Simulated assay, not measured.
Amino acid sequence: MITFDVKDMTCGHCIKTITQAVLAVDPQADVQIDLPSHRVQIESASAVAELSQAIVQAGYSPVVTTGEPAISAPAKKAGGCCCH
């Protein structure tokens, strides 16, 4: 299980966007998201960096909290959630 902390995830739209981004990388992934704690847990055969990059490209700033050494996302690009 890979866990990301995604502080800029704020609403249901964010959950849907991140889930779709992960499933585009691995359609068999099990994605569990806890919005109040800003936690995204993914069970996947894909590499952590690949999943992190998909979330970044969706407009968010994931930080790995388990699974492998922490990888901070680059500065957030324009886009992401409509709420912030």
Rank of each mutant, 00 (worst) to 15 (best):
M1V: 14
F4V: 12
V6K: 02
V6D: 04
V6G: 06
V6I: 08
K7F: 12
K7M: 07
K7V: 02
K7A: 13
M9P: 10
T10Y: 15
C11H: 05
G12R: 07
G12Q: 12
K16S: 11
T17F: 09
T17Y: 07
A21G: 05
V25H: 06
D26K: 10
Q28R: 10
A29V: 14
D30R: 07
V31I: 06
Q32G: 09
I33R: 04
D34Q: 15
P36W: 15
P36V: 10
R39N: 06
Q41D: 09
S44E: 08
S46R: 15
A47N: 07
A49G: 00
A49R: 03
E50W: 02
E50M: 05
L51W: 13
L51S: 10
S52G: 05
S52F: 05
Q53H: 08
Q53Y: 07
Q53S: 01
A54E: 00
V56S: 01
A58C: 04
Y60E: 02
S61P: 00
S61V: 15
P62Y: 04
V63I: 09
V64F: 09
V64A: 09
T65S: 14
G67R: 04
E68K: 05
P69G: 07
A70R: 00
A70F: 00
A70P: 02
I71Y: 03
I71W: 01
A73T: 00
A73I: 00
A73C: 00
P74R: 08
P74T: 04
A75Y: 00
A75I: 09
K76Y: 03
K77E: 10
A78K: 15
A78R: 15
G79Y: 09
C81D: 11
C81A: 08
C83N: 12
